[in-house]
Write a protein that binds this DNA or RNA. Structure first.
Lengths: 259, 259
DNA sequence: CGGGGATTTGACACATATCAAGAGCGGTGG
DNA sequence: CCACCGCTCTTGATATGTGTCAAATCCCCG
């Protein structure tokens, strides 16, 4: 794959093309510059001035990824940061015993790959649970740009800091809460995340299996299933397979110890 | 023991002097420049060339801290990075319900405070479990220096990346392992950390209570106590209150699922 | 030397894991 | 289009690990 200068060619015309024909646009490299991306407010360059064109130099290529496909695997060399434009993913670590621990469920607007900095290799694997598209940001290039753009650098630091805090929350969740609280926390976090992306906070579809949820929450899949059934029986939610509808939001929230 | 040598020739009197200019203050305040600090290899400036004097501009002041004293509390404004020179600490989050979740046990050579970047406020509290000394690095100044020193910047990124990976490990630990494995993992991690600082890997003193350990591992203090007793009964360790001696290192390691 | 906190240990309760069976959904190929 | 097959999900019975409550001892600190 040739990584050449193609970024500046981005135009509104191309964007329209992207909307109509996904594959065509993909071939044409970057149909949408970061500065005109609809995810601009949540994505990496958030906080940069519109006039700061350094953000548009970041993304060299995009990649479409299909369900079940890996974006990268643990051990792969760390070359890119990945900014998700669409789709739904899971990141996980697996132990030699074959056990896997799901560590996150990234989706559109999230940025991934910062785990690889220390060792120059990815330490987690990332797989798509739903077809999506991801912006690939060459990290070496990113660093160079960041040196000229303190705002971008600071944004990156905020992102890493946020990731550390997110994991602190998960640690607290795994460490101290019982099954019902864990699942309630999970559902509410998902609801909030969907809401932040413009989707419904009250009704959404899970893209992961009960086993994935269980792994993430430190529970067995049967326990997750049972808790969801119990939530349904007490009229907190309506659950049918992957479809979730939150019926009693305050009731759910009352199960969460607190932030 | 390298640590013994590194310890403070710093006098409280010196601390009275305060910052005038960067270089002046650095020279006046810091009895030991970063470039000559014995923790140089593990601390923040690790990776910088000896000839790179930017590292010596970082530390404005030191602070001695006594057992039970807080370095900072959740909610405090984020102004400094803290590089520990000696002592033993714990970081924790507490929920409104009064529960607390211990998130780490930092010690000499560790750097703390990166959690505050995102919100400009610290999100965890840090308290000393043992008297110690800490280098205070003004973060705003650090950023300025880092912009001129790509090596320092990269080092910072590595540190944040490592913290993220460390938390991934803890998540895996909390999520999937049973009590014996958790405690074994904890003891081995501690042993390794002590060894890395020049202390014995086979015999050391815990600085934290059973409750602290339990909180960190997602267990109750009684469970921690029972597991330690069981380890002693099976001749894996000798435990007497805070004193721990590892008798059968390989036996202990066999209890840890992962690599 | 006294007292409060830390630790250990026991008995018991309970939440979650484990084992097992069956049903439902979705993809695939005839 | 239908039938099949595999995977996911649900639900039940049981096992077990860990939490809870309680009491005694020990240690450290003032």
């Amino acid at each position: 794959m040739a990584i050449a200068a193609m970024v500046q060619n981005a135009s509104p015309v191309r964007k329209a093309l992207y909307v109509r024909s996904v594959r065509e646009a993909t071939v044409a490299q970057c149909p949408t510059a970061c500065s005109s991306c609809t995810l601009h407010s949540t994505c990496l360059p958030c906080g940069l001035q519109q006039t700061d064109d350094s953000m548009d130099e970041l993304v060299y290529s995009r990649r479409r990824i299909h369900r079940g496909e890996h974006l990268y695997r643990a051990g792969d060399p760390f070359k890119f940061l990945y900014a998700f434009r669409s789709g739904f993913f899971k990141t996980y670590i697996d132990t030699p015993e074959g056990q896997t621990q799901v560590t996150a469920f990234p989706m559109a607007g999230d940025v991934l790959g910062l785990d690889g900095i220390e060792t120059d290799k990815h330490r987690v694997s990332t797989v798509a649970l739903e077809d999506g598209e991801v912006c690939m940001i060459p990290f070496a290039h990113f660093q160079a740009v960041a040196l000229r753009s303190p705002a971008l650098l600071h944004q990156m630091h905020r992102m890493m800091s946020r990731e550390i805090m997110r994991e602190h929350s998960v640690m607290a969740l795994l460490g101290g809460m019982r099954a019902e609280s864990r699942v309630a926390t999970f559902l509410l976090a998902l609801s909030e995340k969907f809401a932040g992306r413009g989707y419904s906070a009250m009704q959404f579809n899970l893209r992961m299996t009960r086993e994935d949820i269980g792994s993430y929450l430190g529970l067995k899949l049967e326990t997750v299933s049972r808790v969801l059934s119990r939530f349904q029986a007490t009229n907190l939610i309506k659950a049918n397979l992957r479809s979730i509808e939150i019926v009693d939001m305050t009731g759910l929230k009352s199960l969460v110890p607190e932030l």
